[in-house]
Design a protein around this nucleic acid. Structure first.
Lengths: 338, 338
DNA sequence: GAGCTCATATGAAGCGGGTAACCATCGCCG
DNA sequence: CGGCGATGGTTACCCGCTTCATATGAGCTC
């Protein structure tokens, strides 16, 4: 029960290995007649090319890599990643490319893995997530000259291609919406402070607040966990005066925040409005349902994978701007009470 | 800027390729002196073995595969999978083995992928999740003779090795706990009906209910989503008489159930007790905090990866029973009112 | 000092497939 | 009928690494 190789097929079809290779790869050098015969034998034998042999001879592995480097306990972001991955897969599987994943809690290790993957040619390229300010991965990948696409941008990419959406636009729309409802004191429970999108959103909040004349804007940074979201909420709601609206950087924290409001006897949305960033079915399960910033994360992943494949095919890609996320108002936002 | 190969090292160190190979792999055939010199050169050149060449010559790829085949929208299980993956990684990274992932919504495609992966020798083995009744993957993998470990069991494994925990024991303890609190009408909002563990838990609920004299036990099957969890809860609580305790097969549904109870003005735990299966930080964020069945999912994944690596090393593994999950009582369970 | 053993090193084959270079045929043209 | 260009097919080598068979030589023994 050995593997079947092109040599077996060649023998069975009465031709040389070379002819088999040409036939199977659809290139000239064999007659239609012979090609059909060879394909039939290959099919009958259930032949599939050895990925190792192919990789060795043409230098391509048919594998892309992705490393998720966040503490395992920060469960709030899983939904994001699973959706991202399924979007990536959708693109890759059509091209018979696979995704190599690593989940780690160690940024040094992440960098080392890129080095190793590339040195070993274990992957053809990588998808980078969670872009940070002064991200050391950017110079590393530039130095390695390893094909990649960054999910994030357009800032902080160096010379690397990115896939991003217009965070400023949505953020602005959220602030304007809250201001229009009559809110004057708003707070933002942000995620990890050194992620690029965290600071982009922060800047956009500040700018748009300025523009609509809001002066009381507070930001608290967290690690995205529900625990920290709850703690931040408790602190914010204990202030005097307390904010009348809170925007959370993910849905887990928004859920936790809603729980804290209940616990403190603060009515949502009457006394407190809540906006979640990244919509999920969870947001619609609660009472009230959470107003949320919604975007098609799977499509985001699909686009990133797409760009990377194009780069591997030799295209010069500078970056790709995805569709702008939208605020979906639901029951958790309303004008503030008196 | 070519890749550096052992030939380069051989030239630089003034020895043959063979000697370099022996030296780098720590096998006899070279003197300590020469070995050190070769290692120094390799280090200096930043050499890493080409995974393709290695795979081709020794038949091992250093990659394991895992396919997650659930609709992307069933977000309730993400937490489980991310934890599982991070456990798997913990074991694999120590051995410099990588994990190839596929997320699909198509069972046919999953089967086809196992076939392809194995035919292409893209992976050395696979980890199977979501074992079903009469699971067609079991005969397939037996036929392919592809190394694998099933997460699940001990039933329905055929001749495949599995990693499982004692679901009957925990399930029984949950039922007995609820009965001891005084509950007489309990319900279970189960997950996908054709998963093995769903039916194992179902049988265990039935058996233990019998034993403690509970006659009113209802089971509703769902797809694990919060939506269906909410719908099932609404239906159950609309019955007369309605159950005084509900056990949910995952935490997302439990959260949704709690939301429905709030919505219907039913006090938890006073009028309704809730137990979630699989604990998560989310369970502790709510009010009341959810009593939950807790297990170390990452360890579970780590053990599975461990078993598979042992099999690849030639060990005869029959199966591995992990530690038994534990019920963690919190604020959502109490004696039923009046 | 012939004959052995043991340690060390080399050369070459092979893993499976891709591909450049070469070789037959055949038909066709002048 | 000799010579030409297609066409279809073969040979041989390459990719980078492992490993087996073989060679070389130092150190022993008798």
């Amino acid at each position: 029960m050995k593997r079947v190789t092109i040599a077996d097929i060649a023998r069975a079809a009465g031709v040389s290995k070379g002819a088999v290779s040409y036939a199977l790869n659809g290139r000239p050098g064999v007659s239609e007649e012979t090609r059909r015969r060879i394909l039939a034998v290959a099919e009958q034998f259930g032949w599939h090319p050895s990925s190792a042999a192919r990789a060795l001879s043409d230098g391509r592995t048919g594998v892309l890599g992705m490393i998720v480097d966040r503490p395992a306990r920060t469960l709030g972001i899983e939904s994001f990643f699973m959706q991202l991955i399924s979007g990536i897969e959708a693109t890759l599987s059509a091209r018979d490319v696979s995704l190599l994943m690593q989940v780690t809690e160690d940024r040094e290790r992440e960098m080392a893995t890129y080095r190793r993957w590339w040195a070993q040619r274990r992957v053809d390229g990588v998808i980078i997530v969670d872009l940070r300010r002064d991200d050391p991965r950017v110079p590393l990948l530039e130095e390695l000259n390893m094909p990649c696409v960054v999910i994030g941008g357009p800032h902080g990419l160096g010379t690397l291609p990115g896939v991003w959406s217009d965070e400023v636009a949505v953020t602005t729309s959220v602030v304007e919406y809250l201001a229009a409802l009559g809110h004057r004191r708003i707070a933002r429970v942000a995620g990890l402070a050194d992620l690029w999108h965290t600071s982009v959103r922060g800047q956009a909040v500040a700018d748009s607040a300025d523009r609509v004349g809001l002066t009381d804007v507070t930001t608290v940074y967290t690690d995205y966990t529900g625990e920290e979201g709850a703690r931040a909420t408790r602190a914010l709601l204990s202030r005097r005066p307390s904010p009348t609206a809170i925007v959370y950087d993910n849905d887990t924290m928004a859920v936790a925040g809603l729980g804290v409001a209940h616990e403190m006897g603060i009515a949502v949305p009457h006394q407190l409005s809540i906006v979640a960033w990244d919509d999920s079915p969870l947001c619609q399960l609660l009472h009230p349902q959470l107003s949320a910033v919604s975007r098609d994360i799977a499509a985001y992943g699909a686009h990133a994978a797409d760009q990377l494949l194009k780069i591997l095919d030799g295209a010069e890609i500078r970056g790709f701007q995805d569709t702008t996320p939208q605020l979906v108002p639901r029951g958790s936002t309303a004008p503030p009470a008196g």
